[in-house]
Amino acid sequence: MNISVNENAPVKSTGKIEIHAPIDKVWQILTSINDWPSWQSEVTQSNLKENLKQGAIFKWKAGGLSFTSQIHTVEPKTKFGWTGKTFGASAIHNWSFSFENGNTVIKVEESLQGVFPKLFKNYFQKNLDKGIQLNLEDLKCASEK
């Protein structure tokens, strides 16, 4: 990854899931940012106005919050990552892809830092853990259709 998660952040979470779909399909679904609201239950808007590439900026809304994110890693069918900011918090979000036993295996990790994650660590940790798992399950469901 071009930017690793912040190991010293007050809030960090990881998750992993096995998806019974080709890695090409899973990659296409995850990296089609403008389509996120069609399969991610928490995302209501997403807008990438340029090609998927390192440095590209996109805006999106999830869970009632607005985010501005910048892609830091695009390694097709291997790694995808971005940083993001919202009021009082910033995040580093990384996805890794592998192919094992005929299935796509996705690992995701995220760190949250800033005044709100520091002040309300337990609240943010609980929500991040839940959000990571929900993202993985949504991606699995969309990919296995």
Rank of each mutant, 00 (worst) to 15 (best):
A21W: 06
A21G: 07
A21I: 09
P22K: 14
P22V: 04
I23M: 03
I23Q: 04
I23K: 10
D24T: 15
D24E: 15
V26I: 11
V26T: 11
W27S: 06
W27H: 04
I29E: 07
T31Y: 10
T31L: 01
S32I: 03
S32M: 06
S32D: 06
I33S: 05
D35P: 02
D35V: 03
D35H: 15
W36P: 03
W36F: 05
W39Y: 14
S41N: 06
E42N: 14
V43P: 00
V43L: 08
T44S: 11
T44K: 00
T44H: 00
T44N: 00
Q45G: 08
Q45T: 12
Q45M: 05
S46L: 05
N47M: 06
E50P: 08
E50F: 14
N51Q: 15
N51C: 07
L52C: 09
L52W: 05
K53Y: 01
Q54L: 02
Q54M: 08
Q54V: 14
Q54Y: 13
G55W: 10
A56H: 09
A56D: 02
I57K: 11
I57G: 00
I57Y: 12
F58V: 01
F58T: 05
K59A: 01
K59R: 07
K61S: 15
K61D: 06
K61C: 10
A62D: 03
A62G: 11
G63P: 13
G64W: 13
G64S: 13
G64F: 02
L65Y: 11
L65P: 01
S66P: 09
S66Q: 11
T68I: 12
T68Q: 13
T68G: 04
T68E: 09
S69N: 14
S69Q: 09
Q70I: 12
Q70R: 15
I71K: 12
I71L: 08
H72V: 14
T73E: 13
P76K: 05
P76H: 06
P76L: 02
T78F: 15
T78M: 12
K79C: 02
K79W: 04
K79N: 03
G81T: 10
W82Q: 00
T83M: 10
G84T: 14
K85S: 12
K85P: 08
K85M: 10
K85C: 06
T86V: 07
F87V: 13
F87C: 05
S90C: 04
S90F: 01
S90Y: 02
A91E: 14
I92G: 04
H93L: 05
S96T: 06
S96Y: 06
S96F: 04
F97Q: 00
F97K: 09
S98G: 09
E100C: 09
E100H: 11
N101P: 06
N101V: 09
N103K: 15
T104A: 04
T104N: 10
V105D: 07
V105F: 10
I106F: 11
I106A: 09
I106H: 07
K107T: 11
K107Q: 13
V108N: 03
V108S: 03
E110Y: 14
S111Y: 10
Q113G: 07
G114W: 00
G114M: 00
F116M: 12
P117H: 10
P117G: 06
P117V: 03
K118C: 02
L119C: 02
F120K: 15
K121L: 03
K121Q: 07
K121D: 02
N122F: 14
N122P: 03
Y123W: 12
F124M: 01
F124E: 01
F124Q: 03
Q125I: 09
Q125C: 10
K126H: 00
L128M: 12
